[in-house]
């Protein structure tokens, strides 16, 4: 489990990016938190910088949309899903349980 930030530091409709070997983005969708790999699978871009609509995030570079629940892209140019990760909130703090393998 990696520590992300205080729950209050991810406002509604926003995302927080955790840098690292594989950066991870945590999104706040109407109070529900989702974590995915932050890097678009098409070209190196931060999905945390993208646009959130419902449970979909649109990559800011080439507009591929990823479903935060499954990590699957809805259409080109991205073809490969991003990994999704389990989010845990404990005592007002957000943690991510980083998945070991890619989700299909």
């Amino acid at each position: 489990m990696i520590s992300v930030c205080a729950l209050a530091d991810i406002p509604l409709g926003e995302a927080v990016r955790i840098d690292g070997e594989t950066p991870i983005a945590v999104f706040n969708v109407d109070g529900e938190l989702y974590a995915i790999d932050d890097t678009c699978t098409h070209q190196d871009a931060s999905l945390a910088d993208g646009w959130l609509e419902g449970c979909m995030v649109e990559c800011p570079l080439h507009a591929s949309c990823f479903d935060l629940r499954t990590g699957k892209p809805t259409g080109p140019p991205a073809k490969v899903p991003v990994r999704t990760h389990r989010v845990v909130v404990r005592d007002g703090h957000v943690y991510v349980d980083v998945a070991v393998t890619a989700s299909a």
Partner: peptide
């Protein structure tokens, strides 16, 4: 500037 390829690097 919002995004650019490899900007996070």
């Amino acid at each position: 500037l919002i995004a650019a390829p490899n900007l996070t690097k």
